[in-house]
Nucleic acid binder design. Structure first.
Lengths: 158, 158
DNA sequence: TTGCACTATGTCGAAAATCGTATTATAGTA
DNA sequence: TACTATAATACGATTTTCGACATAGTGCAA
Protein backbone atom coordinates (compact mmCIF):
# COMPACT_ATOMS: atom_id res chain seq x y z
CA UNK A 1 0.00 0.00 0.00
CA UNK A 2 1.43 3.31 -1.07
CA UNK A 3 1.63 5.81 1.71
CA UNK A 4 0.17 9.19 0.90
CA UNK A 5 2.32 12.20 1.68
CA UNK A 6 1.13 15.57 2.69
CA UNK A 7 2.73 18.51 0.99
CA UNK A 8 4.10 16.18 -1.61
CA UNK A 9 4.10 18.89 -4.23
CA UNK A 10 5.92 21.51 -2.16
CA UNK A 11 8.05 19.84 0.45
CA UNK A 12 9.91 22.98 1.58
CA UNK A 13 8.70 25.66 3.89
CA UNK A 14 7.35 28.69 2.05
CA UNK A 15 6.45 32.21 3.12
CA UNK A 16 3.14 31.13 4.61
CA UNK A 17 4.86 28.46 6.66
CA UNK A 18 7.38 30.96 7.96
CA UNK A 19 4.57 33.40 8.68
CA UNK A 20 2.82 30.73 10.69
CA UNK A 21 6.03 29.84 12.52
CA UNK A 22 6.81 33.45 13.29
CA UNK A 23 3.29 33.93 14.61
CA UNK A 24 3.18 30.80 16.75
CA UNK A 25 6.72 30.57 18.05
CA UNK A 26 6.02 33.24 20.63
CA UNK A 27 2.43 32.27 21.38
CA UNK A 28 1.25 28.79 20.53
CA UNK A 29 -2.41 29.69 21.17
CA UNK A 30 -2.70 32.56 18.75
CA UNK A 31 -6.02 32.08 16.90
CA UNK A 32 -5.65 30.77 13.37
CA UNK A 33 -8.13 33.41 12.23
CA UNK A 34 -5.71 36.15 13.23
CA UNK A 35 -2.72 34.53 11.53
CA UNK A 36 -4.91 34.05 8.48
CA UNK A 37 -5.84 37.73 8.39
CA UNK A 38 -2.18 38.76 8.73
CA UNK A 39 -1.04 36.44 5.95
CA UNK A 40 -3.96 37.06 3.63
CA UNK A 41 -5.28 33.51 3.46
CA UNK A 42 -8.20 31.72 5.07
CA UNK A 43 -8.29 30.14 8.50
CA UNK A 44 -8.68 26.75 6.85
CA UNK A 45 -5.35 27.16 5.09
CA UNK A 46 -3.61 28.02 8.33
CA UNK A 47 -5.27 25.06 10.01
CA UNK A 48 -4.10 22.67 7.33
CA UNK A 49 -0.60 24.10 7.20
CA UNK A 50 -0.17 23.89 10.95
CA UNK A 51 -1.33 20.28 10.91
CA UNK A 52 1.14 19.49 8.14
CA UNK A 53 4.00 21.25 9.86
CA UNK A 54 3.29 19.26 12.99
CA UNK A 55 2.97 15.99 11.08
CA UNK A 56 6.30 16.62 9.38
CA UNK A 57 7.95 17.32 12.71
CA UNK A 58 8.77 20.85 11.64
CA UNK A 59 6.72 22.53 14.36
CA UNK A 60 5.61 21.51 17.85
CA UNK A 61 3.08 23.49 19.85
CA UNK A 62 3.98 22.72 23.43
CA UNK A 63 3.98 24.01 26.95
CA UNK A 64 7.48 24.52 28.25
CA UNK A 65 7.82 24.26 32.00
CA UNK A 66 10.38 26.18 33.98
CA UNK A 67 12.21 23.30 35.66
CA UNK A 68 13.03 25.25 38.81
CA UNK A 69 9.39 26.26 39.34
CA UNK A 70 8.47 22.60 38.99
CA UNK A 71 10.93 21.55 41.65
CA UNK A 72 13.85 20.51 39.47
CA UNK A 73 16.41 22.62 41.26
CA UNK A 74 19.40 20.79 39.87
CA UNK A 75 20.12 20.65 36.17
CA UNK A 76 23.26 19.19 34.76
CA UNK A 77 24.78 18.25 31.45
CA UNK A 78 26.57 14.95 31.39
CA UNK A 79 28.95 13.93 28.66
CA UNK A 80 29.30 10.20 28.21
CA UNK A 81 32.11 8.29 26.49
CA UNK A 82 30.98 4.91 25.23
CA UNK A 83 32.61 1.76 23.89
CA UNK A 84 31.77 1.87 20.20
CA UNK A 85 30.14 -1.57 20.04
CA UNK A 86 27.92 -0.80 23.06
CA UNK A 87 26.62 2.53 21.80
CA UNK A 88 23.12 1.35 20.93
CA UNK A 89 22.68 -0.39 24.26
CA UNK A 90 23.89 2.62 26.20
CA UNK A 91 21.60 4.94 24.23
CA UNK A 92 18.68 2.60 24.88
CA UNK A 93 19.41 2.54 28.60
CA UNK A 94 19.78 6.30 28.76
CA UNK A 95 16.61 6.84 26.75
CA UNK A 96 14.64 4.86 29.31
CA UNK A 97 15.93 6.99 32.14
CA UNK A 98 13.37 9.50 33.41
CA UNK A 99 15.92 11.99 34.71
CA UNK A 100 17.31 12.50 31.22
CA UNK A 101 15.46 14.93 28.98
CA UNK A 102 17.99 15.24 26.15
CA UNK A 103 20.48 12.95 24.45
CA UNK A 104 22.62 14.10 21.56
CA UNK A 105 25.19 12.19 19.56
CA UNK A 106 28.24 14.42 19.32
CA UNK A 107 31.71 14.75 17.94
CA UNK A 108 34.69 14.86 20.26
CA UNK A 109 36.07 12.97 23.20
CA UNK A 110 32.58 12.01 24.40
CA UNK A 111 30.11 10.47 21.99
CA UNK A 112 27.00 11.40 23.95
CA UNK A 113 25.78 14.61 25.46
CA UNK A 114 22.87 14.41 27.89
CA UNK A 115 20.91 16.78 30.04
CA UNK A 116 19.42 15.66 33.35
CA UNK A 117 16.83 17.23 35.60
CA UNK A 118 16.63 16.29 39.26
CA UNK A 119 15.23 17.86 42.39
CA UNK A 120 18.42 17.98 44.44
CA UNK A 121 22.12 17.29 44.51
CA UNK A 122 21.33 14.20 46.54
CA UNK A 123 19.14 12.92 43.75
CA UNK A 124 21.85 13.75 41.23
CA UNK A 125 24.42 11.74 43.14
CA UNK A 126 21.98 8.84 43.48
CA UNK A 127 21.35 9.02 39.76
CA UNK A 128 25.05 8.95 38.98
CA UNK A 129 25.90 6.12 41.38
CA UNK A 130 22.82 3.93 41.11
CA UNK A 131 21.86 4.41 37.50
CA UNK A 132 24.40 5.98 35.19
CA UNK A 133 27.51 4.22 36.44
CA UNK A 134 25.74 0.88 36.41
CA UNK A 135 25.12 1.00 32.68
CA UNK A 136 27.63 -1.32 30.95
CA UNK A 137 29.70 0.15 28.14
CA UNK A 138 30.29 3.60 29.61
CA UNK A 139 34.00 4.29 29.83
CA UNK A 140 33.98 7.87 31.09
CA UNK A 141 31.60 10.64 32.10
CA UNK A 142 31.88 14.37 32.59
CA UNK A 143 29.32 16.22 34.69
CA UNK A 144 28.80 19.92 34.03
CA UNK A 145 26.51 21.71 36.48
CA UNK A 146 24.16 24.32 35.09
CA UNK A 147 24.49 27.26 37.44
CA UNK A 148 22.34 29.83 35.66
CA UNK A 149 20.62 30.16 32.33
CA UNK A 150 21.74 33.46 30.84
CA UNK A 151 19.94 33.29 27.50
CA UNK A 152 17.36 30.91 26.09
CA UNK A 153 15.51 31.49 22.86
CA UNK A 154 12.98 29.10 21.44
CA UNK A 155 11.85 31.63 18.86
CA UNK A 156 14.96 31.71 16.76
CA UNK A 157 13.20 32.17 13.42
CA UNK A 158 13.58 35.74 12.28
CA UNK B 1 2.25 52.45 44.38
CA UNK B 2 2.09 48.98 45.86
CA UNK B 3 2.46 46.27 43.25
CA UNK B 4 -0.22 43.64 43.32
CA UNK B 5 0.88 40.03 43.16
CA UNK B 6 -0.96 37.23 41.57
CA UNK B 7 -1.27 34.04 43.52
CA UNK B 8 -0.09 35.80 46.62
CA UNK B 9 -1.88 33.38 48.89
CA UNK B 10 -0.56 30.20 47.27
CA UNK B 11 2.76 30.83 45.62
CA UNK B 12 3.57 27.17 44.93
CA UNK B 13 2.19 25.02 42.18
CA UNK B 14 -0.75 22.90 43.33
CA UNK B 15 -2.58 19.94 41.83
CA UNK B 16 -4.55 22.09 39.44
CA UNK B 17 -1.38 23.75 38.19
CA UNK B 18 0.24 20.39 37.61
CA UNK B 19 -2.90 19.17 35.91
CA UNK B 20 -2.76 22.15 33.60
CA UNK B 21 0.93 21.62 32.92
CA UNK B 22 0.46 17.95 32.23
CA UNK B 23 -2.36 18.77 29.84
CA UNK B 24 -0.59 21.54 27.97
CA UNK B 25 3.01 20.30 27.86
CA UNK B 26 2.17 17.94 25.03
CA UNK B 27 -0.33 20.18 23.25
CA UNK B 28 -0.30 23.88 23.90
CA UNK B 29 -3.62 24.39 22.09
CA UNK B 30 -5.71 21.98 24.13
CA UNK B 31 -8.99 23.81 24.86
CA UNK B 32 -9.27 25.14 28.38
CA UNK B 33 -12.80 23.74 28.53
CA UNK B 34 -11.43 20.22 28.20
CA UNK B 35 -8.77 20.72 30.85
CA UNK B 36 -11.45 22.22 33.07
CA UNK B 37 -13.69 19.20 32.64
CA UNK B 38 -10.83 16.83 33.43
CA UNK B 39 -9.81 18.72 36.54
CA UNK B 40 -13.33 19.45 37.76
CA UNK B 41 -13.13 23.23 37.72
CA UNK B 42 -14.43 25.98 35.44
CA UNK B 43 -12.86 27.07 32.19
CA UNK B 44 -12.35 30.52 33.70
CA UNK B 45 -10.27 29.02 36.47
CA UNK B 46 -8.01 27.30 33.95
CA UNK B 47 -7.75 30.48 31.97
CA UNK B 48 -6.70 32.46 35.02
CA UNK B 49 -4.26 29.81 36.20
CA UNK B 50 -2.60 29.57 32.81
CA UNK B 51 -2.23 33.34 32.72
CA UNK B 52 -0.67 33.31 36.18
CA UNK B 53 1.67 30.48 35.35
CA UNK B 54 2.82 32.36 32.27
CA UNK B 55 3.21 35.63 34.19
CA UNK B 56 5.31 33.85 36.81
CA UNK B 57 7.53 32.37 34.13
CA UNK B 58 6.55 28.87 35.15
CA UNK B 59 4.96 27.94 31.84
CA UNK B 60 5.44 29.09 28.26
CA UNK B 61 3.10 28.11 25.45
CA UNK B 62 5.29 28.24 22.38
CA UNK B 63 5.89 26.84 18.94
CA UNK B 64 9.14 24.93 18.77
CA UNK B 65 10.69 24.78 15.34
CA UNK B 66 12.79 21.88 14.12
CA UNK B 67 16.02 23.68 13.27
CA UNK B 68 16.91 21.36 10.41
CA UNK B 69 13.52 21.85 8.73
CA UNK B 70 14.06 25.59 9.01
CA UNK B 71 17.41 25.39 7.28
CA UNK B 72 19.70 25.31 10.30
CA UNK B 73 21.59 22.24 9.22
CA UNK B 74 24.49 22.76 11.59
CA UNK B 75 24.02 22.86 15.33
CA UNK B 76 26.89 22.98 17.72
CA UNK B 77 27.57 23.43 21.39
CA UNK B 78 30.44 25.72 22.20
CA UNK B 79 32.06 25.84 25.59
CA UNK B 80 33.76 29.13 26.37
CA UNK B 81 36.43 29.83 28.98
CA UNK B 82 36.47 33.46 30.06
CA UNK B 83 38.75 35.75 32.04
CA UNK B 84 36.86 36.24 35.29
CA UNK B 85 36.81 40.03 35.17
CA UNK B 86 35.51 40.04 31.58
CA UNK B 87 32.65 37.62 32.15
CA UNK B 88 29.84 40.20 32.02
CA UNK B 89 31.19 41.73 28.83
CA UNK B 90 31.58 38.38 27.14
CA UNK B 91 28.07 37.34 28.15
CA UNK B 92 26.71 40.62 26.82
CA UNK B 93 28.50 40.12 23.51
CA UNK B 94 27.33 36.52 23.22
CA UNK B 95 23.77 37.46 24.13
CA UNK B 96 23.65 39.92 21.23
CA UNK B 97 24.75 37.25 18.78
CA UNK B 98 21.91 35.93 16.64
CA UNK B 99 23.50 32.54 16.00
CA UNK B 100 23.42 31.74 19.73
CA UNK B 101 20.17 30.45 21.15
CA UNK B 102 21.34 29.30 24.58
CA UNK B 103 23.90 30.51 27.08
CA UNK B 104 24.38 28.76 30.41
CA UNK B 105 26.77 29.59 33.22
CA UNK B 106 28.41 26.33 34.23
CA UNK B 107 30.85 24.69 36.56
CA UNK B 108 34.08 23.21 35.25
CA UNK B 109 36.93 24.20 33.00
CA UNK B 110 34.68 26.39 30.86
CA UNK B 111 32.45 28.97 32.50
CA UNK B 112 29.99 29.28 29.63
CA UNK B 113 28.09 26.75 27.62
CA UNK B 114 26.40 27.95 24.45
CA UNK B 115 24.40 26.44 21.66
CA UNK B 116 24.60 27.86 18.14
CA UNK B 117 22.41 27.34 15.09
CA UNK B 118 23.75 28.03 11.62
CA UNK B 119 22.84 26.98 8.12
CA UNK B 120 26.17 25.43 7.12
CA UNK B 121 29.66 24.55 8.22
CA UNK B 122 30.86 27.55 6.26
CA UNK B 123 28.64 29.80 8.35
CA UNK B 124 29.88 28.09 11.49
CA UNK B 125 33.49 28.74 10.60
CA UNK B 126 32.68 32.35 9.74
CA UNK B 127 30.91 32.70 13.07
CA UNK B 128 33.90 31.30 14.93
CA UNK B 129 36.52 33.37 13.12
CA UNK B 130 34.69 36.63 12.57
CA UNK B 131 32.55 36.82 15.67
CA UNK B 132 33.41 34.51 18.54
CA UNK B 133 37.17 34.74 18.42
CA UNK B 134 37.02 38.52 18.13
CA UNK B 135 35.29 38.92 21.48
CA UNK B 136 37.87 40.12 24.03
CA UNK B 137 38.19 38.12 27.23
CA UNK B 138 37.73 34.64 25.79
CA UNK B 139 40.72 32.46 26.66
CA UNK B 140 39.62 29.15 25.21
CA UNK B 141 36.74 27.53 23.34
CA UNK B 142 35.60 23.98 22.71
CA UNK B 143 33.29 23.21 19.83
CA UNK B 144 31.13 20.10 20.05
CA UNK B 145 29.18 19.24 16.92
CA UNK B 146 25.65 17.91 17.33
CA UNK B 147 25.46 14.96 15.00
CA UNK B 148 22.03 13.61 15.88
CA UNK B 149 19.39 14.24 18.51
CA UNK B 150 18.56 10.87 20.04
CA UNK B 151 16.06 11.99 22.67
CA UNK B 152 14.39 15.31 23.39
CA UNK B 153 11.59 15.71 25.88
CA UNK B 154 9.94 19.02 26.63
CA UNK B 155 7.19 17.30 28.59
CA UNK B 156 9.22 16.14 31.52
CA UNK B 157 6.50 16.64 34.14
CA UNK B 158 5.06 13.29 35.16
C1' DT C 1 -1.67 20.82 -25.58
C1' DT C 2 -5.42 18.60 -23.15
C1' DG C 3 -7.29 15.79 -19.68
C1' DC C 4 -6.57 13.26 -15.37
C1' DA C 5 -5.42 12.71 -10.61
C1' DC C 6 -4.11 14.79 -6.66
C1' DT C 7 -3.29 18.44 -3.52
C1' DA C 8 -4.26 22.98 -1.76
C1' DT C 9 -7.30 26.60 -0.85
C1' DG C 10 -11.71 28.73 -0.25
C1' DT C 11 -16.82 28.98 1.42
C1' DC C 12 -19.83 28.67 5.00
C1' DG C 13 -22.83 27.24 8.72
C1' DA C 14 -22.98 24.50 13.07
C1' DA C 15 -20.63 23.55 17.22
C1' DA C 16 -17.32 24.72 20.51
C1' DA C 17 -14.28 27.69 22.92
C1' DT C 18 -13.01 32.10 24.58
C1' DC C 19 -13.71 36.32 26.88
C1' DG C 20 -15.45 39.79 30.13
C1' DT C 21 -18.54 41.15 33.78
C1' DA C 22 -20.78 40.28 37.79
C1' DT C 23 -21.41 37.22 41.64
C1' DT C 24 -20.17 33.92 45.15
C1' DA C 25 -16.81 31.36 47.86
C1' DT C 26 -12.60 30.94 50.44
C1' DA C 27 -8.51 31.81 53.09
C1' DG C 28 -5.77 34.73 55.83
C1' DT C 29 -5.86 38.27 59.37
C1' DA C 30 -7.05 41.72 62.68
C1' DT D 1 -16.21 37.07 64.29
C1' DA D 2 -15.93 40.48 60.67
C1' DC D 3 -12.93 42.41 57.13
C1' DT D 4 -10.12 42.24 53.06
C1' DA D 5 -8.16 40.39 49.16
C1' DT D 6 -7.81 36.59 46.22
C1' DA D 7 -9.84 32.74 43.78
C1' DA D 8 -13.54 30.35 41.70
C1' DT D 9 -18.00 30.28 39.52
C1' DA D 10 -22.05 31.59 36.49
C1' DC D 11 -23.25 32.97 32.17
C1' DG D 12 -24.25 35.41 27.91
C1' DA D 13 -21.91 37.75 23.93
C1' DT D 14 -18.40 37.15 20.78
C1' DT D 15 -14.88 34.71 18.44
C1' DT D 16 -12.82 30.65 16.94
C1' DT D 17 -12.73 26.10 15.44
C1' DC D 18 -14.29 22.36 12.79
C1' DG D 19 -16.00 19.65 8.96
C1' DA D 20 -18.34 19.00 4.59
C1' DC D 21 -18.33 20.52 0.21
C1' DA D 22 -16.86 23.32 -3.75
C1' DT D 23 -13.21 25.48 -6.42
C1' DA D 24 -8.56 26.24 -7.98
C1' DG D 25 -4.00 24.97 -9.10
C1' DT D 26 -0.09 21.81 -10.22
C1' DG D 27 2.42 17.93 -12.13
C1' DC D 28 2.20 14.33 -15.29
C1' DA D 29 1.22 11.57 -19.12
C1' DA D 30 -1.23 10.62 -23.30
Amino acid sequence: MEETFRRSLYPDLDDIDYGIIRALQGNARLPFTQIAKDLGVTEKTIRMRVQQLQDEGALSLVGIVNPVKAGFHVQAMIQVAVDAEKLDDVVAALTDTVEIRLIVLTSGEYQLFTQVLVTSNEELSQFLLKKLHKIPGISKTNVINELKILKSKYNFIR
